[in-house]
């Protein structure tokens, strides 16, 4: 098969192609022509791409929140200490990690108090399994999530882990939460269940109370099932934490709690 030779018609299709607006026969014909290796079209397409980059850059800049800035810059924190870049864990390993998490808690426990927890963790495992299926489509995100699963395992599957159950208050009595603090590495994990979705412009914010003062531990949104998890990099001496709480705050989070408390324990 020979593709159509270069012509003014193809040149006229290029700007819409760069925009991603081309469809139907136009798209098919131009792609055949480009695949055949037209140098002139390739050169012109790069110019259109440049124009679109300039258009993208002409928006009014918006300063990222401190939370976002800190989260993004934290990604590189490990690099200086020669930690290898996050590898993508295969799906079975992510599922095994979730199963291990359940077994670790079961093994330590033996107490009936923890049976309810097992149910919740099973739900959490199922949620993770669904999450893994979705993330499969996005390699980058999957990498991030699998890394978080591995980190979660490090926090939870360690001796001396301290766990606190948070109960739902006023606006969300059915909600539940649970924190796990690893006293050795000072990391903490928080899981929330059955929290209602928030209106636009609002976020949930996690706090721990130490020395009588609330310390912000991260903002989060819930998934369609009302579940969420937060990993706290560093908490002070476990024994100094008096309580954990979740409040509803303006998007981006605040340094001091201002909104309604929905979880406490």
């Amino acid at each position: 098969m020979t593709a159509a030779p270069h012509s003014a018609r193809f040149e006229e299709l290029l700007p819409a192609y760069a925009l991603g607006a081309l469809d139907g026969d136009d798209l098919r014909e131009l792609e055949e022509h480009l695949t055949a290796g037209c140098e002139e079209c390739r050169r012109q397409l790069e110019l259109w791409d440049r124009d679109l980059e300039a258009l993208a850059g002409s928006v009014v800049p918006v300063e990222p929140s401190e939370t976002t800035r800190a989260r993004v810059l934290r990604m590189t924190a490990g690099a200086a200490t020669a930690v290898p870049p996050p590898r993508r864990l295969p799906r079975w390993l992510a599922l095994a990690a979730a199963a291990l998490l359940v077994m670790a808690v079961w093994g330590v426990a033996g107490q009936t108090r923890l049976r309810g927890e097992l149910e919740r963790l099973t739900a959490e495992r199922d949620r993770l399994a669904r999450q893994v299926a979705v993330l499969d489509r996005e390699v980058t995100l999957a990498r991030d999530a699998a890394e978080r699963s591995a980190q979660a395992l490090q926090v939870v599957a360690a001796p001396g882990v301290k766990s606190v159950v948070l109960a739902g208050l006023g606006p969300a009595p059915q909600a539940k939460g649970q924190t796990y603090v690893n006293p050795r590495q000072g990391g903490a994990l928080f899981y929330a269940f059955d929290l209602p979705a928030l209106p636009q412009g609002k976020t949930y914010e996690l706090w721990y109370i130490a020395a009588g003062k609330p310390v912000p531990a991260g903002t989060f949104a819930v998934d369609p099932h009302g579940a969420a998890s937060v990993r706290v990099e560093r908490v002070p001496d476990v024994s100094s934490i008096q309580a954990w709480a979740v409040t509803v705050e303006p998007a981006g989070g605040v340094p001091q709690p201002t909104g309604a408390m929905v979880l406490k324990g």
């Binding site: 850059g57 800049p61 918006v62 990222p64 939370t67 976002t68 949104a221 998007a251 981006g252």
Partner: peptide, 22 residues
């Protein structure tokens, strides 16, 4: 980051979602 977040906000309209995508 500021111009990128500007673009994301322009497309998504929701600040929190824009910061997530950022």
């Amino acid at each position: 980051a500021p111009v990128t977040l500007g673009l994301l906000s322009r497309i998504l309209g929701r600040r929190m979602e824009a910061e997530e995508v950022l």
